[in-house]
Every structure is written in C-alpha cells, then in structure tokens.
Design a protein around this nucleic acid. Structure first.
Length: 424
RNA sequence: GUGGACGUAGCUCAGCUGGUAGAGCCCCGGAUUGUGAUUCCGGCCGUCGUGGGUUCGAGCCCCAUCGUCCACCCCA
C-alpha cells in the first residue's frame, strides 16, 4: 500500500512541539483578558465574494493564493486567507456594529496557496486582535501595547516596531496618482516586479528590496507629505501615546500593506533575524471595511501574528517549552498486577484530579518498564508485580525524590502518594 | 509562478575515482533469574523517493517524475 502523502505546505504539529503552541496560546489569552478582549470564533469557510470585496480583487492574495472551490450547490467558497474579513462579516451578520464597541480576538488556521518556505506555509495559524467602533488613536496604541506585552510575557526579544499612516482613502488615492506619475516618468529604471506593480498596487514599489531601486524610491514623493490633516492628527496621537508608554518605534514612510482595506495607521513588528519572512505581527486600521461589506460605517483596527513564526523565533532564542512530565509512573508486571493496577490508578486519579499518572501499558519486564518510567520524567514510580499482589501492597519507589522505596497497603495508596509528592 | 540545493534503516547521517549497503540514536533482550540514567554484549530495522536509461555490474553516471528545504515574489 502506498502511504497517503500530506498536502504540500500543511504541517503536522507533533506532540513534541505542541507545548510551545499551547504556551503561546495560553499567554495570548491571558494578555487579551488583561485588556478586556473577548474571544470570537468564526468559520474557516466563507463565500469567496467576501474576501474579494474585503481584501481587494487585485491583491496577490485574491488573485493567486486563495483556496477556492465550488460546493455541491455551486456556491463559491474559500478557505479564509486571513481573519479580519470573516470577523467583520460576523459583526455585521449578528448586528454588532450599530452604536457599539467591541474588543475581540480569535485564533486559528488560515490558508494561502503560496510556495512554502521557512516561516511560510499554506496552512498557517494566526492570533488575531480586532477592535470595532473606536475612532481615536488610543485603540491603535492599545493594540500595539498589547502586542508588546505579549512579546515581553513570551520572552521574545529583538522585535522592531515600524509604523506609518496611509491616510484616508481619498488622500491615498491622490497620493497613488502622484506616485504613478513619478514612477511612470522613470519607467525605464524599474525592474520587472515594480513595473507589474505600477499598474496594480504602485504603493508596493516603495517596499521593493531591490537595491538598484533604492535611489529612485528615496526620491519618490512621500506619503507623509500627502496626508490629510485629520489623518496627520490621528497619527501624531498614536505616536504620542507610544512615546508615553515608552515603546520604541520607527516611522517608516515606505511601509504599505498588501491588503487594500487599510486606512490611516499601519504597523509591523519585524525581526531582523530572517530575510524576507520578517513580519511577525502586523496590522492597521480599516475604517472603511465594515461599510464596504454592507454594514454601517464603523471604524475598526486590528492586527494578526503568525504563530509558526513566533514559535520559530522562540526556539531560535532558546525559549523552548516542553510538556509537563507525569508525576507518577505505574510499573505493572503480570496479568493480575495489570488489572489491579488499572483499578488503583483510577482511585488515585479520583483522589488527585490534577495528578499526572501514566501507566506502563503494553507490559514488558520490570527493567523495560522502569526504563520507560525514567524516560517519562516521573518523580515517583508505583510498582506492582506478583509479589505485591500476593501481599496486598504497592511499592513506591522514588525516582526523582529523596527517600527510600516503601510498600503501602492498597487503601493507603492515594494518601501516601500525596504525602510523598507533597500534594495539597 | 521563477531560481538553487537535497532525497540511503523510525530519526540524524556515512558510503572513496560505479563492483550487489554501514554507524549512532531509538526500540527489545541479557550481564547470578523483579527495579530506571552510565557501561558492556546481543537482537530488530532498508525494494538506497519513484520510473526509465547507460554499463558485465549503479546508492553512486544520464533523463524524467514526485517530494522536501532555501531564496525570489508575496505575506503572518
């Protein structure tokens, strides 16, 4: 039989690495709770039209990266490539945008059909923060502070914050026209990628990593010079609050984002440790999105971080997280011992609900079961063989505790385990 | 979509200028017959990614194909 292969770019998170994921998710939930953000869960599948409308028809994501298909009724469905569109849709569907304010987070898988490489996968996982109904730069600042706290809690170092403002859609449109004019005048100097972008998303030319274009880009008209007055005030408000909080940042006038829905604030937390896949967390404001999806005009802002990238970063910085070993490993040799041991194990678990007790299922000699007991990292071994069964006792052998091996009567087992391990 | 590397036991890898496969780890058993990490001994494990071709003979050469990784692009 041929084994069935996994799907390209879709990875298994094995038990060895799962504790790191759990840690990231647990800390994130705690930090969100500390700021009053509530969890919202939305479907992984949405109508294809939602993403086209939200993200933009001419973005790379929509043009060539979405996993789209028709269901049996002929409806066009798409595995979500990002979380914001679905959440904005859910807010509208559930009547949560009228005169209301919400701070939410969600977490889960996203799908984009790109070529996989380090830190980039076809199924990847994001933690996503969203705030609806807040107009001012205070929420922009809060979201950034929240993320900064997350890095601190996770012990991640070396992330740099870059921020920028794209202004209102009108200001952005005007700037875009200026930019097209500028780059068209120097069309012969552009490389292939930038020429392609000139028609679709000229702002992205500013983001080019091609050193040959550096001078040309440096001479391009600046977005910050074309900001409308209100957006400027908004941006200054954000900067002031970041200054107040002592969060270091760089204003990067070339920072634009790949998704069409951003307005005003955009930001990225980037790592200098990698090459191109350097964005660990990024987001911005999308005041027009809810209206664009058919809801009442509602200001909104949020960010998303990539769990895979965070976990890689933590590993590279030596912050590994491993599973909690069992407290107790039950060595049981012989048919009678095995049956009695399973019964006793249940009694112990009844007495100590938080105790981690692993049994030597599958049998094996004393030697091999003790080897497993040692490998499991358990502090204490329970030993049950024919001799103990006859005597009506269980042997307790400390593996990573002081003290001697002892035999205890069956009825005393839970209490004795508790006192050897120093449990409540 | 483009470019570059690599695909040998469950895992990490070795295999010289082509002569029908090795090590370590893991797992199992043993070292006075019921007690873990170390040490020693033994055991288990492979159609060398797949399909063609060249050759007396290919893991080593050629072609194709699939897959993985890295980079570009894009993004989390």
């Amino acid at each position: 039989m041929e084994p069935i292969a996994p799907i390209t770019g879709m990875n298994d998170v094995l038990p060895e690495r799962a504790p790191a994921w759990q840690h990231v998710e647990r800390v994130a939930r705690e930090v969100f709770a500390a700021y009053g953000y509530q969890e919202i869960r939305v479907p992984i599948l949405e109508q294809t039209g939602l993403f086209k409308r939200a993200i933009g028809e001419f973005t790379d994501i929509v043009e060539k990266e979405m996993f789209s298909f028709e269901d049996r009724g002929g409806d066009g469905l798409t595995l979500r490539p990002e979380a914001t569109a679905g959440i904005a849709r859910a807010a509208i569907s559930n009547g949560l945008v009228h005169n209301q304010r919400h701070r939410w987070y969600t977490l889960g898988p996203m799908f984009r059909g790109e070529r996989p490489q380090k830190g980039r996968y076809r199924q990847f996982h994001q933690i996503d923060a969203e705030a609806y109904g807040f107009e001012g730069p205070d929420v922009d600042a809060e979201l950034i502070l929240l993320s900064a706290r997350l890095w601190k809690r996770l012990g991640i170092e070396g992330l740099k914050l870059e921020i920028n403002s794209l202004g209102t859609p009108e200001a952005r449109r005007a700037y875009r026209a200026t930019l097209v004019e500028y780059f068209s005048a120097h069309a012969d100097a552009l490389d292939a990628d930038s020429t392609r972008r000139l028609g679709g998303n000229p702002l992205r030319i500013l983001d080019s990593k091609n050193p040959a274009l550096a001078a040309l880009i440096a001479g391009a008209p600046r977005l910050t010079d074309h900001l409308d007055a209100e957006s400027r005030v908004h941006f200054e408000g954000l900067c002031a609050r970041l200054d107040d909080a002592g969060v270091a940042y760089t204003v990067n006038p070339r920072l634009v984002r790949g998704l069409d829905y951003y307005t005003r604030t955009v930001f990225e937390w980037i790592t200098t440790a990698w090459g191109a896949q350097n964005a660990v967390c990024s987001g911005g404001r999308y005041d027009g999105l809810v209206a664009q999806l058919g809801g009442e005009h509602t200001p909104a802002v949020g960010w998303a971080l990539g769990i895979e990238r965070l976990v890689i970063l933590m590993e590279e910085q030596g912050r590994t997280v491993s599973a909690e070993p069992p407290h107790v490993f039950f060595v049981m040799v012989g048919a009678a011992a095995e049956r009695l041991a399973l019964r006793l194990a249940e009694q112990v678990r009844d007495a100590w609900p938080d105790l981690r007790l692993e049994t030597g299922l599958g049998g094996g000699s004393f030697k091999s079961q003790f080897r497993r007991a040692d490998k499991s990292g358990a502090a204490l071994a329970l030993v049950l063989g024919d001799g103990e069964v006859e005597r009506g006792v269980v042997a307790l052998k400390p593996l990573r505790l002081g003290g001697e091996q002892e035999e205890v009567a069956l009825a005393d087992l839970p209490a004795r385990i508790g006192s050897r391990l120093g449990l409540g």
